[in-house]
Design a protein around this nucleic acid. Structure first.
Lengths: 233, 233
DNA sequence: AATAATTGTGACAGTTTCATGACACCGATA
DNA sequence: TATCGGTGTCATGAAACTGTCACAATTATT
């Protein structure tokens, strides 16, 4: 589960900070200061992703990227380039070399992590793209389809994401704020109560089919998606 | 319960506005105009979060951030940096010092509050999340569920917290004041006898299932949650 | 036994929280 | 431009929750 990320960056403070942030976020960081060091560390086990600084002593990062892309075993490792400025020319050169994404300095920890996750998701489309089935509810993220007991539903985008989140996080209470973070996104600022309304819409959409109370209100805490019927004592 | 937030900002109008917004949203604001003032105020009780302006007389905010991150006790206090758009290049320097997030001026109150909550949520999770089992009583804080001998209970928020406290503090007498402190929160003014009523409600909710007297009254002292059948002191 | 102290219990009103329908806004599209 | 689906916010009423009280029941004290 823990992804290995190789950080190639010559400036020690930035490198250490990146490592710190990565490990805070559950990644496993490996450090390299130079292209030579990096090449030495790209052996088995191969890292799952490489964070590559653009300006490096002993050659630009693109050089390393190119050589990696030529090797059968390292060819598929995604690379995120760290560039000092958003320079169009550099980007073009980078894309030639098969760079997967860019993060322009300065960047925030949040941004970095978000990019990394995005790239991993894109390259390894495993879990997030798998169809889910839960108590007769089928959700196919790829086809963007939902059905209950083989009767298909018509959901709006937000309702779809909300249901998707719930289906992958069942039997657990989430506060309105947590739902906003996970379904709407971290930098969206809407009222807590907006969640209520969407819960309502989703409930309405999946109502009437078998199991009544998939979405349960936990007063004072939030909502829970559960297969167990809400029984009271 | 109330989070303490230290606002380090030299411009009075902005500082006061921030304080106002914070207090509107249930936070407890402490103000500081300079780095020196801020350092003087970062003593026990340590603030839960620091809002730090970038441009300050007597040094940049990063300086303060760095010194905080070096101290064992202040190291974990999350910092949100306030930067003006023009300061963007300094992001790297801030990042370097271990900033948790940025809010770029001008910002809306909504955005500020959302960021603060997100950071607090990210920094202070876990710990109280483990499921407990005690003589057939199961309590799962994550799912927010309680059952006795696999029969699920329906508890209100206060009853839930009270039971949670008892399950993590069994076989020991607690006075009404202690229970108020631990379950209601420290600076809440309610009558002692309120505890009695909630004890009653909790007793009622878990009654009839096997062991009769989980909650024992210790006359003159308080209450005790116990697995042993009623014995007296 | 009588009295005092303490706790149990039911009721109640004020408050908080939630469900729900309505509505205005926005971007896409015809 | 007009329409339409999707979305966020608000007002409203219902329901749940909470703290407090009055009084009953129990236990301790004289």
């Amino acid at each position: 589960m823990n992804r290995q990320i190789l950080v190639v960056e010559d400036e020690a403070p930035i490198r250490e900070m990146i490592t710190f942030v990565l490990e805070q976020n559950g990644f496993n960081a490996i450090e390299a200061e130079t292209i030579e060091q990096a090449q030495a560390k790209i052996k088995e086990p191969y890292p799952d992703l490489i964070l590559l600084d653009w300006m490096l002593p002993g050659g630009t990062g693109v050089k390393l990227a190119k050589s990696l892309k030529q090797n059968e075993y390292t060819r598929t490792i995604p690379i995120i380039m760290l560039t000092a400025r958003a320079d169009e020319d550099d980007k073009v050169k980078g894309f030639d070399a098969g760079i997967d994404d860019y993060v322009t300095k300065p960047f925030s920890p949040k941004e970095l992590i978000a990019r990394i996750k995005a790239v991993i998701r894109r390259v390894a489309p495993t879990a997030l793209e798998e169809a889910i089935e839960f108590h007769g509810i089928k959700l196919d993220p790829v086809a963007h389809r939902v059905s209950i007991n083989d009767k298909s539903l018509d959901l709006g985008p937000t309702e779809f994401r909300l249901l998707h989140f719930f289906l992958t996080h069942t039997e657990r209470v989430y506060s309105r704020e947590q739902l906003l973070d996970n379904v709407w996104g971290t930098n969206v600022y809407v009222e807590d109560r907006t969640v209520d309304v969407h819960i309502r819409r989703l409930r309405k959409a999946i109502a009437g089919e078998g199991h009544e109370d998939f979405i349960q209100t936990v007063r004072g805490s939030g909502y829970r998606f559960s297969g167990k019927t809400k029984d009271r004592a």
